[in-house]
Design a binder for these strands. Structure first.
Length: 139
RNA sequence: CUACAAAUCCGCGCUAUCGCUGGGGCUCAAUGCCCGAGAGGAAAGUCCGGACAGCAUAGUGCAAUGCACCACCUAACGGGUGGGUAUGCGGUAACGCAUAACAGCAAGUGCCACAGAAAAUAACCGCCCUGCAAAGGGUAAGGGUGAAAAUGUGCGGUAAGAGCGCACGGUAAGAGCAGGCAACUGUCUUUACGGGUAAACCUUGCGUGCUGAAAUGCCCAAUAGGCAAGCGAUUAAGGGCGGCACGUCCGAUGCUUGCGGGUAGGCAGAUACAGUUGUACAGUGAUGUACCGCGUAGAUAAAUGAUAGCGGCACUCCGGCAACGGAGGGUACAAAAUCCGGCUUACAGGGUUUGUAGUUUA
RNA sequence: AGUUCUAUGGUGUAAAGGUAGCACAACUGAUUUUGGUUCAGUUAGUCUUGGUUCGAAUCCAGGUAGAACUA
């Protein structure tokens, strides 16, 4: 699908998980695992030809971080990490598959960019493994 | 110059790489490319007031609820400005500064623990009179309790005393005069003086219709069901008309089209106005008027960012008489969600003005 | 975005404006060979900052934390 020599690290709003129905089905049917301080919920769905291989959402619970400034900052950090590294996940998916993702911050202290970057890296590695496993199993 | 207080303003900058959300242009259109825009003084808390929208609505009262010295400003306000009064602080005083939910307890009702004789029409000790005494009567000076104890001082008066009388005061209410738009102040006079509490119920005066953008209006995919028309099917079940038959009407299922309600979703509401820089004028001031300019976020699982480097800024330590140099950690509070005016709360650091105090120089 | 309410020892709860109680828990001592039970005692509190009042857990205002509701 994507030629790897002209990869662009973009994240427009069409690659964000926004519809309420999609989010509800993700939270009901999806599988989850944790990479501290993140919790990742994902599920693989069939995709239409025009759409992108992944849809991602990000959130920080209000109980953990009280101030809106801190919540916005954390969400932006996770989003930046995902934007830069999301192309590592694409080869593991079949062309007719779309992955829905949700990142939830579960830590209690303000994180640094390097830590978030590393944990997103780990999360993507585990996701690749699981995707490959499920594809082999079904085939 | 330093310190303190008040008011007011600002509240990190630049570069590189990679991005995000609207607007405009190129493009048939999408993608893409180019241009330009993109958090605050509190955006916060949601404590008041409006705009706006829907519903309700003759008028008046009750209930509920809010406010409360006066005048002015304002779209409006529980906000602001100016004035008055009270209290506190400083000062010999004149006066200055700060604070105030600052109507009414002289409308009614309630409450005032403990202590104390008594907490509101007071009498324990005391004082005085009568009496041998017991007791009875008068009194509110003095004592003591308490947060609060019945107008202070002096003289007269009396058995002892007492606003009982008088003089000078204090407080409150009323009338007159003078000043002031008014609150109120000054003066004079009359009357009263048996507490406090309304942030106790309450009374008086003034005000308030209810609900909030998840308001409200509009467009409408798929699926299911509804209605209408057409096509197809009709020796089919069933029902109506009928005594029965024929007949006729309705009717199940299928397809197509249209209509209406309306879900997911989308659009409007929604960003050009009670806007604002500057100047002039009016006003003590809040503010208003006029002119010239300015255009300044619009997201919706929610954009305005991430990383790196350089530089500001104040602080600490070291070296130095100083200029300065080196190192270190720091660079606040905080994110629009329909909009506006206030209030309250949070805030690293810095600038300006005014006032007070101190020091130095001329 | 809006509305309503709550806050009392470690926990659960009382208290017409007048000394902040009760139960469980914790600790100490006694009883017991020891533990438990029981008995006696101790510690510890009105979310916070102001105001009204002679006096505030209570009344009023600002703040903090928490809970519920409106789809």
């Amino acid at each position: 699908m994507e030629s790897s020599n002209i990869q662009r690290f973009t994240l427009p709003s069409t690659e964000r998980l926004k519809l309420r129905k999609q989010i509800e089905t993700l939270f009901q049917t999806g599988e989850a695992f944790s990479v501290y301080p993140l919790r990742v919920i994902y599920c693989i769905t069939p995709r239409e030809t025009a759409s992108t291989p992944s849809l991602a959402g990000f959130s920080v619970p209000k109980k953990k971080m009280k101030l809106a400034v801190q919540r916005n900052r954390i969400k932006r950090l996770i989003r930046e990490s995902w934007r830069v590294q999301k192309h590592d996940l694409a080869p593991a998916l079949l062309p007719d598959q779309q992955i829905h993702l949700f990142f939830i911050f579960t830590g209690k202290d303000m994180p640094v960019h390097a830590d978030i970057y590393k944990s997103v890296q780990k999360a993507i590695a585990t996701l690749r493994k699981k995707c490959v496993q499920t594809n082999e199993h079904t085939s």
